[in-house]
Structures are given as structure tokens and as C-alpha cells.
Computed example of a mutant assay.
Amino acid sequence: MQLDVVQYLHDFMAHVMPYQKEIWHAIGETFVMVGISIAAALCLGLPVGTLLFLCRKGQLYENRAVFSIVNGLVNIIRSFPFLLLVVAMIPITRMIVGTSLGTVAAAVPLSVVAIATYSRLVEQSLLEVPKEVIEAASSMGASTLQLIIKFLYVEARSGLTLGLTTSTISFISYSTVMGIVGGGGVGDFAIRYGYQRFENELMVFTIIVMIILVQSIQFGGSLAARLLDKRRA
């Protein structure tokens, strides 16, 4: 039995090793797409989510018009089927990066989804901040920027971290279908080399890679969130 397992693993790796260059290239493409989307989520999704929170009914800067517009856009993007969004954004992608094909081009629609997804999670995390914190900041004469950075983000840092972790895993999932616009990545490798060539070993290997990647991100994000949890300090 043990010899059979060893032989199976030997045969399995014999099928995989000739493609190691392509595998590493695909992993690199996935990292580029996901990395750009994470940057977009932090640079734009975080402020958008904060704006949604501040403009909500009953909050410090309540503004029904602004909230309705931003909230509507976020809802539309989040409810849009991802593949259709990728195709619909081809003209916009071509305008931004000069082409609609390639890894960087694929990161454009992925970034749009990232902004919408993380902004909603940011809003939810900030809603969990006790109102007393905002009242205390206002009574101390804190400016809007100070209120956001030194009070809201500090109180919600654990939730924001978990939200980013969840979003990152979603971005990885979305990136697997970016082969339709030449984005490459692990998913595209699995389809082209595994599924279309009937190389089941390559399919299994890419699934294992994705599982390891997702589990590592989830573990790291959960650990960071626990360490940042003010309630546990």
C-alpha cells in the first residue's frame, strides 16, 4: 500500500514538473492581479466605505443625497455578474491601460469589484464602532481626519483586517476566470493545460496550490485581526 502511494506521488510529480516554469508564471500573474486589486481596495475602497458610514442617516455627516448615490453605485457593481462586468468594461480598460488584454488590463475590472466589495465591508466594520467613541472625539475637538484615522480606524482595525482578508480571498477566486481577457493566472493555467489537454494531474495540482494560498491568507488575516483586536488588548 505504501509503495503504491509513493509510486502514485512519483507519477503525479512526473506529470507536473515539466510545467513548473508555466506554473510559476501563472502564480506570478495571479499575484499581480490580486496585488493591484488589494491596492485599489485600500486606496479607494477604504475611503468610499468611510464616506458611506459618515453620510448614513444618524451619523456625524449625514447626507442623504451623497449616501444614496454612492450606495447605489456600490450595490450595482456588487450585483453585476462578474464575467459580464469584465466584458462590459473592455472599452474603459482599453482607455485606462491602452489594451484590453493582459494581466494589467485584467486587473482593472477586478479592481472595480475590489473597491465596491471592500467599501461595503469597511462600512459594516465602522458601524460596529460605539457611538460614544465618535461623541468623545467630537467633544475633544477632533477634526474629521483625526476622527477617522485616530478613532474610527483604530477602533475598527480588527474588523477592517478581517474584511480585507475576506476580500482578498474573493479577489483570488475572481482572478481564476480572467483568462477570458488574456489575464492569465492560476485559473487560466488550469483550464488551458489541465482541462483542455486532459491533464488531470495539473488540475489537481493547481487546486492544491489555490487551497494552500487561500488557507495561508485566511490564517494570516485571522491572526492579524486577533492581534489588533482592541477588546483583547
Rank of each mutant, 00 (worst) to 15 (best):
residue 36 I to K: 06
residue 36 I to T: 07
residue 36 I to W: 09
residue 36 I to M: 12
residue 37 S to Q: 06
residue 38 I to V: 14
residue 38 I to E: 11
residue 38 I to F: 04
residue 38 I to C: 13
residue 38 I to W: 08
residue 38 I to K: 02
residue 39 A to V: 14
residue 39 A to Y: 03
residue 39 A to W: 06
residue 40 A to R: 01
residue 40 A to Q: 05
residue 41 A to M: 09
residue 41 A to L: 02
residue 42 L to I: 14
residue 42 L to W: 05
residue 43 C to L: 15
residue 43 C to P: 00
residue 43 C to I: 14
residue 44 L to Y: 11
residue 44 L to M: 11
residue 44 L to D: 03
residue 44 L to F: 15
residue 45 G to W: 08
residue 45 G to D: 06
residue 46 L to C: 03
residue 46 L to K: 04
residue 47 P to L: 12
residue 47 P to T: 07
residue 47 P to A: 11
residue 48 V to I: 15
residue 48 V to M: 15
residue 49 G to R: 02
residue 49 G to E: 05
residue 49 G to I: 01
residue 50 T to Q: 08
residue 50 T to G: 12
residue 50 T to W: 12
residue 51 L to R: 02
residue 51 L to G: 04
residue 52 L to F: 10
residue 52 L to C: 02
residue 53 F to Q: 04
residue 54 L to I: 02
residue 54 L to D: 03
residue 54 L to K: 04
residue 55 C to I: 00
residue 55 C to Q: 04
residue 57 K to I: 00
residue 57 K to T: 06
residue 57 K to Q: 13
residue 58 G to A: 06
residue 58 G to Y: 07
residue 58 G to N: 04
residue 59 Q to Y: 11
residue 59 Q to W: 05
residue 61 Y to M: 12
residue 61 Y to P: 00
residue 61 Y to N: 05
residue 62 E to I: 00
residue 62 E to L: 00
residue 62 E to N: 01
residue 63 N to R: 02
residue 63 N to E: 07
residue 64 R to W: 08
residue 64 R to N: 09
residue 65 A to D: 10
residue 67 F to S: 10
residue 67 F to D: 13
residue 67 F to N: 15
residue 67 F to L: 04
residue 68 S to A: 15
residue 68 S to M: 09
residue 69 I to R: 02
residue 69 I to Q: 03
residue 70 V to S: 07
residue 70 V to T: 08
residue 71 N to M: 08
residue 72 G to R: 01
residue 72 G to S: 10
residue 72 G to V: 01
residue 72 G to T: 03
residue 72 G to L: 04
residue 73 L to I: 12
residue 74 V to F: 06
residue 74 V to T: 11
residue 74 V to A: 09
residue 74 V to W: 08
residue 75 N to G: 12
residue 75 N to W: 00
residue 75 N to M: 03
residue 76 I to S: 10
residue 76 I to L: 15
residue 77 I to Q: 02
residue 77 I to A: 11
residue 77 I to S: 01
residue 78 R to K: 10
residue 79 S to R: 04
residue 80 F to P: 00
residue 80 F to I: 03
residue 80 F to G: 09
residue 80 F to V: 03
residue 81 P to N: 09
residue 81 P to H: 08
residue 81 P to K: 06
residue 81 P to I: 07
residue 82 F to D: 11
residue 82 F to Y: 13
residue 82 F to C: 05
residue 82 F to K: 06
residue 82 F to T: 07
residue 82 F to S: 10
residue 82 F to N: 08
residue 84 L to M: 13
residue 84 L to T: 04
residue 85 L to S: 08
residue 85 L to M: 14
residue 85 L to R: 04
residue 86 V to A: 08
residue 86 V to E: 08
residue 86 V to H: 10
residue 86 V to Y: 10
residue 86 V to D: 09
residue 86 V to R: 05
residue 87 V to H: 09
residue 87 V to L: 15
residue 88 A to D: 03
residue 88 A to H: 05
residue 90 I to R: 09
residue 90 I to K: 07
residue 90 I to T: 14
residue 92 I to K: 01
residue 92 I to G: 05
residue 92 I to S: 09
residue 93 T to Q: 11
residue 93 T to E: 12
residue 94 R to K: 14
residue 94 R to S: 13
residue 94 R to E: 14
residue 95 M to H: 11
residue 95 M to S: 14
residue 96 I to G: 06
residue 96 I to P: 02
residue 96 I to L: 13
residue 97 V to G: 12
residue 97 V to C: 11
residue 97 V to P: 03
residue 98 G to I: 00
residue 98 G to Q: 01
residue 99 T to E: 12
residue 99 T to R: 10
residue 101 L to Q: 12
residue 102 G to P: 00
residue 102 G to K: 00
residue 103 T to A: 07
residue 103 T to R: 05
